[in-house]
Design a protein around this nucleic acid. Sequence first.
RNA 1: GCGGGGGUGCCCGAGCUAGGCCAAAGGGGGUGGACUGAGGCUCCACUGGAGUAGUCCUGCGCGGGUUCAAAUCCCGCCCCCCGCACCA
Length: 951
Amino acid sequence: MITIPSQDFVAFLNEISKKWQDEWNRNKLFEAEPKEGKKFFTTVAFPYPNSPFHLGHGRTYVTGDVYARFMRMRGYNVLFPMGFHFTGTPIITMADDVAKGDKDLLDIFQNIYEIPSDVIPRLSDPLFMANYFKEEIKMAMRELGLSIDWRREFTTIDPQFSSFIVWQFSKLQERGFVVKDTHPVGWCPVHNLPVGMHDTKGDVEPEIGEYVVIFFDTPLGRLAAATLRPETVFGAVAVWVNPKASYVIAEAWGSKIIISEKAADKLKFQMDGVNVIQRVSPSDLQKMNATNPVTGREIPVLPADFVDPNTATGVVMSVPAHAPFDYFYLKRSRVNLEIVPVISLEGYSDAPAKELVESTQVKNDADLKKLTEQLYKSEYNKGVMRADILSRVRDQLKESLSKVPGSSVPEARKLVTEVLSERGMASKVLEILNKPVYCRCGNEVVVKLLKDQWFLDYGNPEWKRLAKKLLANMRVVPDEVRKDFEYSLDWLQKRACARTRGLGTPLPWDKRWIIESLSDSTIYMAYYTVAHRIKALNLHATQLSEEFWDYVLLGKGDPAKVAEKSGVALETLQDLRRNFTFWYPLDMRHSGPDLIPNHLSFFIFNHAGIFPEELWPKGVAINGFILYEGKKMSKSLRNIIPLRKAVKNYGADVVRISLTSLVDMATDVNFTDSGARAIAETLKKFFDMLDMKSGSRIVGIPERWIQSKLHRIVKDSVPLMTDMKFREFINEILFNMSSYVNEYLEMVRSESREYNPDVIREVLEIWTRLIAPFAPHLAEEMWHRLGHTTFVSTEGWPSHDESKINDVLELEHEYHKQLVEDIRAILNVYKGKPSLVMIYVHDGTLTPLLREAVEIVTKGGNLKDFMSSKRPSSKEEAKTYQRLFQYVTEMGENNKRLALLGVNELEVLRKGVSYIRYKLNLDVEVEPFTNEVKTKFNKEALPLRPAIIVQ
RNA sequence: GCGGGGGUGCCCGAGCUAGGCCAAAGGGGGUGGACUGAGGCUCCACUGGAGUAGUCCUGCGCGGGUUCAAAUCCCGCCCCCCGCACCA
């Protein structure tokens, strides 16, 4: 006996995992080279090494590996490579944080990831960090048993890879997909650098929004009022300024304008030529009137504390009919102004702001803010522009604004903005919407309009068309996410493709810029096909010119000339070309759903824009995220489980199954300790079956039954696995198969004999191969213990023996089980000590009739169809038919199929008596149903529903 | 707001595109039992309610509707999660 106690099973798993990983490695099992036969090229998005892997990272990699291993066993020449993404700023930011001694980060590195204390200080060097975590992640991948061809590993800052990226951008440039434009970004005025989410305090993404600025003329200059609701300008009856803030008269937008001093400072980041002429006090402003540019009326300038001088222009127009703030403060300052309604809203009076403020107990600005949100929302969605506003409009605007009355708020907003902007009466200013956002250095982030920024123009109609075509021909697993891709491809517009800092490749034609990380990771799968050769041949980046890549990747140019020019041997060039064309196109790419709107969409665009159609990727597979004990893993919850730790605690195979196969692909999976243990226990059960070597060689009903179950599973396995229905598959081969084995052993026991070791072996021979993609280490170990000397990882997928699938046998056994259930249900309510169970079987005279009824029901027919086919001759007969038909509609599928087979029920039952006796632990007798039985017990029997009498 | 996905029994999670095999798979947990020197192993039974008979009642977010029949189809409502850009 080699029984391994369960508590030691994990240790055992870890031991064999190491052993087989080494064996695979030694035998170069996963190093793929072009050869005759079908190929399968699969990739998973490469990791960004700014931390070790945690449990959440594992799912996609294992999912990809499971599929790779399955395809390998299906006879495909599988290439599964891996690289590392060094491009971008987060590594730099994180290294900075280490240097600064960021407490939270150090705590996580020390106490969660258990990074040695002598290593931590060295992580302040970004390159050290990237390389350190790269190795760490590689270890995790190896320990998980990923079947990767490691010869092809690279990082995105390898000079050779950079040459590839340079080539990529040249191609995009040639096609006109790279354009120059201005672009607003969050900006730190002290750093003088763009600020993204990773650079802010609390990791907030600065949201940039647009305010419309409407100019109200005054004797001193144009008061620039900023608003998110320009359509309400018809009802602007005053202009607010903050009495405590300082204002300036400045040159901007080609005229003299009045804005807050702070606004003037920030405006300089958005346009050239902003010039402060002089300060002006709020009290001076209040002495003047301003002209509403739309109505032409003179309106007062009034003080209000709620106006934030630091937001937009620091000047606000006052629309008391629709802005609760405006109404409230006008009323409080006892200014009596006309309230001009602009929007009509069902369920409200003319001036909804007034109505809301007066019907609510407004205590502070927070209350007003709530009311404002409520009102803005309903007006935006349901409001209609009033007809009478046109009468207030000054003559020269009447015609161009004539379409405003009757239109919806969003339409009116667009129209008003357009009309006013065209006439120089309005402009726009950008502002951080979720302000204040602070840079890590402590300064408040502002909006800067970057000029001469480089973009990939994903809005280019021709490019979009190609991308959509690619998607249409691509396999998407699961199919539900195809919609997300369609939406994303449609929505993408210009996207900045270069940054001013971070690791990566300089833009070939403008070296001040570094190609940004989501732009240099779109077609890198192509690089894998030759990466190992470039390394082995020690090719230098300078040799890898545009012509070189043109030939290798596109077959363009004369190889002899390219060889001469680059110094790369002709045969080498041709070999590289062969490698590329052999593996490309990519067959499958695995990723999480977070990459759909960005990386995966760019992956589609760039392939579509650079490669000919026959080299476009064939498929993507998306899997959900990971929860740990029902919760999202997060720094704040401190529930991050390092992947390597999980592998150590549960065993690689257990983690692999837990991450990939407990739920459907698209749903988030919940990793729990109890779930992982359940998987380990079940795996162990199969492992322990290796010891079941002695017994009887009888092949009876139980043997034929379990063989039928086994081969049916094998038969269903290929479609399930091909569709990546891993949950269903694991459910079948792990949990169901295990209970089939139990059932088999019970069936054997009920015959008072031993199991058949040959059958157990047959189960294990097949099972080991079926589980191999999921639990490759255990499968390998068992495969060898079964006496094989090959690797199960490269064995063929098992095929089923159709002759062993026996429907009738399975149906009959289900029938026996159903009967046991029925009897148990009776015993449940039976008072007294049962000693004997009598089963009286229907005589079979109704069987042909039953079959006809089942046939009709199966075809979707109803009682009428049945009656008209039978034409009963008496009322009595009709009643029998009706009852029988009713019975059939309520029958289970199993019995229906038995009915169609027209089996002899008495015989079937006799075959099962010993099983039923065994399960109930009671004496059971089977007899034909007779009239005497009927009168004695007042019981009926129907076909497939014998009368049961408990005594 | 726009777009996508959900709300199922103590918990997790299938099923709902093709309505009847659904009191609703599977796993976890719980209760009882078998095995055992012992068990945290394994196996068996039970795990909505009622019941001296294989049944009946209630039930799959809430409220309606279609149908002989609805977790599954239709309408309305409530709630939750994710993405919305220059960031990996």
